[in-house]
Every structure is written in structure tokens, then in C-alpha cells.
Design a protein around this nucleic acid. Structure first.
Length: 468
RNA sequence: GCCGGGGUGGCCGAGCACGGUGAAGGCGCGGGCCUGCUAAGUCCGUCCCCGCAAGGGGGCCCGGGUUCAAAUCCCGGCCCCGGCACCA
């Protein structure tokens, strides 16, 4: 059974090198692997040969007796010694080969842009909604639309919206990142009152939408063993993302994607059992180790949040269709929230290592003057499934690795930041998206039409906000 | 918790007391032949790895051990079934 990457490494190494170049990564690893692989194969052949000799002698022993038997036994023992030595060599090689193989990212799909110009990490492919653009950000807005050949209608506003961090902390008074920083560290938060209900309503909304589409709802383990987690993500992401539980072989999940992928670990499926559609709900824990000082204010980039995640195991020939389907599902959800967004296709150099192709959905953030990532949608092809051992037995008895895909549906804290900025009125009132009202009705003290400010917002002559 | 039985290839299932030539056989599935078509029949294939191939190696819940040789014997673990006991 062949894993497309291993196949390419052996039969078409230039394809892998191309792929690495597109990702702006060193291609030396390919030659390194080929060398290790052929070394490993030749040592394995030697060992197999020795073992064969040993097996032959071993069988003969049972048929002879006396001195001849003693001689054969002696001979077998000598072979055994030789085999043991070789096996040590093989083990070392095998581990190194495996380590190198695992560090090679997925092959980049042909439709993925590469050689993107300086500062461009993704290419917009479509826009939705009418963004509110503060006069001071009009040039920035055009830089993110017209530059890519899109002429997007927008609404100009002369008042600058309050950033989501100040909104939750000061204007609404429903968040406290300072106290959280004191007791847990930076990138943590206390959320209060209406915003907690909003968080839950967002999750319920996403669950409702996805289950209606036939995705099976799953609440997965929030921790995984090292071996399992290392099969679903690459080592770089592991180091940057994952928290370890002390004294246990357990790691906190960064997304429901990981335990859902692992659900079918070492499983063989029949062709007609696919596709398998899951929608997972779980907290996500992320160290954000390489994020530096980016997005330190507020709750845009945090160590913990709630997320509803789409996950698909598909037949290899259907995965590109499902990739489009997943981003479409996410778009429906964000359209429902009434937030203006764009879908971008990531340039090869900016994609995750598991992904062959990746879309992001980015919502316009009026206070930042930027489109910011809310959803990430990847086709991992057979990269995860080969490591996990999730296979399909075809009608003609061939075995193949399935394809896996994942996409955010809604991540709670990011959605809240988007709502706080986009649904903000000049006085600091936040209008609740209509589609969420149904999911807020279950709370007797929940917000109905809007969340009202504790401190009113006014503006200076340039339109900059003055709080209080 | 105690006693007994058990975990074998997609499924069923033999082998295990007495370690030794290919893990038997069946079902299902795929393919060839046959046939007017279907069925039946028949042959081949149907865990993983190396090899263009011939062929070879490894695999019998997991991890150790004994042995020239382990599905089979020994030690440790996990899980399942039955009986008994106990009980929110």
C-alpha cells in the first residue's frame, strides 16, 4: 500500500523538492531521506538473508540428531550473533529514517499559489458582505481588496470603532485579562455575563448548523497520548502548540481535529462507509509559543477557547470536493452571523505541514483595519491517515489510505472579537446577530437585541474614540 | 473483588495438553475460465515489509523472557465472556 509522499520520495523526488521549494524550505532533506532509505533497504535485505539462513538451519535441526545436530545448533547460534549486530545497525537507521520522513511536509497541491510577492502570504479568492471602513483605513482596505483585483463595496464611517480588547474590558466591562494574567499568565482571560452566554450561543449555533447537515456530533477526549498526537500533527506544531500534563503521558489537545482523527487510528474501512463526517466540540489549548508579542491585547490570540470543528474522512478521489464543501459550510455560518469576510487561499510557504491546500476565512475587523483569520480549512490528503493507519479496503481488494480534512466551524473567542468590532454602534452598543438570538433565549438573563455599554463612547474631532 | 473460560488474518474458526516443514478450513470480497444470461462449478488472489521478478523476512491482544526454533512454554499488563459476591 502506498503513501503518496513515500511514493514520490522514491519514484519522483523532484516533485517533493519542488514542493519544498514552494514552501520555502530546504530541499536537502529529500536526498538525506533517499540515502537513508536505500541504506535501510540494503541492510534489511542483508538481515532477511541471514534470517533465512537461520530458518533453514533451524528446520534442519529438527530432522537430524547426534553430533550433526550439535554442529547445526552451534552454527545457528553464530548466525544469531551476526543477526543481532546487524539489527542494531538497522534499528538506528530505521529510527533516523522515520525521523526524517516524519519531518517532510505534505506535498503541495498544484492549485496552491507560490512565489507570492514579499509580504503576501495568501491570495483572496472571494469576498462577502459590506465592510464598515473607517475613513482612516480606506487605503489599508484597498490594499487588501483592490490590490488583488477585487472591487468590494464598503460603507465608510467617520467614527473609529473601539478595538475588541477595550470593548470587552472597558466599554462593556465583561472581560478581565489583567487579573487573568496575574493568576494564570498572559493570553488568558476572564469572561463575564453576556459574553459567556454569547460564547455558548455561538457554539450551539455551530453545532446546530453542522448536525443539520448530517455531521455526527462528537465530544472527544481533551488529552491524548504522545504517540497518538505525534501521528496527527508535525513536530514543529507540536512544540509550538501543545501543553503537556506533568507526570503523565498526556497532552492537551489544540483542537478537536486531533482526537477525531485518532478515533479511526489503525482502522480499515469499507469503501461504502466513506465519507465519515464529524463535527467536534471541545476546548482548544494552545501555547502560542512562536507568536511572540503579536495580538497580546484582548482575546484574539489566547491559550484556551471553545471551538466547533468539522472533520471528514473521505475517499481519496473525493477529498477536493469535500475541501470546497467544508469551506462552504464555514461560510454559511459566518454569513449567518452577518460578518463581512474574505476567503483566502494560503500561499505554499504559509501553509501548515499537514496540509496539501489550505483556505482561511478572514473577517474584516473595523478597529484594526484588517481582515483577520477566523477559520482554517485544510485538506491533509493521506498525510495524517498514513501515520495513523486509517485505510480503505476497495471493492477490488486494493488498500489505500483515506484522506482527512478539517475546518473550523466557529472558534468562540475569535468570533466574539469579530462581533464586538463589527456590530458596534458609535455609542458602544453591540448588536447581537439575529441568528444567535434563538440560542440565547434559553438564558433568562441573556442579551436579547444588544449588549449595552457600561461606559459610553464619544469621539474627538478626528473620529477617535473617547471612553467614559 | 473472587473463581472459571477466552483474545488467531475483513468475519467465523482449527492449531496450543506433547514448541519444529506453508497459520488448516469455511464465509465474504476481487479476478480468470466455463456458460445464451444468471446460478452452480472450477482455478487464482485477498495482514505488513523488502524485491523488477524469482523469492525472502516479519506477523497469531500488548510488553518482556526461555530456546537453534514460540500462535504453542514462562513472567507482567490490557481487554472480553460466564458464574458468584458486593453496591450507589
Amino acid at each position: 500500500m502506498s503513501w503518496s509522499l513515500l511514493n514520490a520520495l522514491r519514484n519522483n523526488p523532484d516533485l517533493v523538492k519542488d514542493s519544498l521549494r514552494k514552501r520555502r524550505m530546504d530541499t536537502g532533506i529529500v536526498d538525506k531521506f533517499i540515502e537513508l532509505d536505500s541504506k535501510w533497504r540494503s541492510v534489511k535485505a542483508e538481515i532477511d538473508e541471514l534470517r533465512h539462513k537461520h530458518n533453514v538451519i533451524s528446520r534442519e535441526i529438527s530432522k537430524v540428531s547426534g553430533a550433526e545436530r550439535e554442529n547445526k545448533i552451534k552454527e545457528a547460534k553464530e548466525l544469531l550473533n551476526e543477526i543481532q549486530k546487524k539489527e542494531e545497525e538497522l534499528n538506528t537507521l530505521e529510527q533516523e529514517r522515520e525521523r526524517v520522513l516524519r519531518s517532510i511536509p505534505n506535498l503541495v497541491h498544484e492549485s496552491v499559489p507560490y512565489n507570492c510577492p514579499e509580504g503576501v502570504d495568501s491570495i483572496p479568492i472571494r469576498f462577502y458582505g459590506t465592510p464598515r471602513v473607517w475613513v482612516g483605513y480606506i487605503n489599508d482596505f484597498k490594499e487588501q481588496t483592490e490590490r488583488f483585483g477585487f472591487n468590494i463595496p464598503y460603507e465608510t464611517i467617520d467614527w473609529k470603532p473601539v478595538g475588541h480588547a477595550d470593548m470587552l474590558e472597558i466599554v462593556l466591562g465583561m472581560g478581565d485579562t489583567l487579573k487573568a494574567g496575574e493568576v494564570a499568565g498572559s493570553r488568558f482571560y476572564y469572561l463575564f455575563d453576556d459574553l459567556v452566554m454569547l460564547d455558548m450561543a455561538l457554539i450551539a449555533y455551530a453545532i446546530d448548523h453542522m448536525t443539520k447537515k448530517g455531521f455526527r456530533l462528537v465530544l472527544p477526549p481533551y488529552m491524548l497520548k504522545y504517540e497518538v498526537l505525534s501521528e496527527v500533527l508535525d513536530m514543529e506544531t507540536f512544540k509550538d502548540m501543545v501543553y503537556k500534563v506533568e507526570d503523565e503521558d498526556l497532552y492537551l489537545i489544540g483542537t478537536a481535529e486531533h482526537p477525531i482523527a485518532a478515533y479511526l487510528r489503525r482502522t480499515e474501512l469499507l469503501e461504502d462507509q466513506l465519507p465519515l463526517l464529524f463535527v467536534g466540540v471541545s476546548p482548544s489549548f494552545r501555547r502560542e509559543a512562536s507568536a511572540g508579542n503579536r495580538d497580546m491585547k484582548g482575546i484574539f490570540r489566547v491559550h484556551q477557547f471553545h471551538k466547533v470543528e468539522q472533520f471528514v474522512f473521505s475517499l481519496p478521489e473525493d477529498s477536493w470536493k469535500w475541501h470546497e464543501e467544508l469551506i462552504k459550510n464555514a461560510e454559511e455560518l459566518w454569513q449567518g452571523l452577518g460578518l463581512p469576510y474574505r476567503v483566502v487561499v494560503l500561499c505554499a510557504h504559509d501553509m501548515g505541514r499537514c496540509a496539501a491546500k489550505q483556505y482561511d476565512l478572514e473577517v474584516w475587523m473595523p478597529a484594526q483595519g484588517k481582515y483577520r483569520e477566523m477559520v482554517s480549512c485544510s485538506n491533509c490528503t493521506d498525510w495524517q491517515s498514513a501515520k495513523l493507519g486509517v485505510r480503505v479496503l476497495r471493492k477490488d481488494m486494493r488498500r489505500e489510505f483515506v484522506h482527512t480534512l478539517n475546518s473550523t466551524a466557529i472558534a468562540s473567542t475569535r468570533a466574539i472579537t469579530a462581533i464586538l468590532e463589527n456590530n458596534q454602534e458609535p455609542d458602544g452598543t453591540v448588536v447581537v446577530p439575529k441568528v444567535l438570538r434563538k440560542y440565547l433565549e434559553i438564558f433568562s438573563k441573556g442579551p436579547v437585541d444588544a449588549i449595552y455599554p457600561k461606559k459610553r463612547v464619544s469621539r474627538d474631532e478626528k473620529g477617535n474614540p473617547i471612553i467614559g
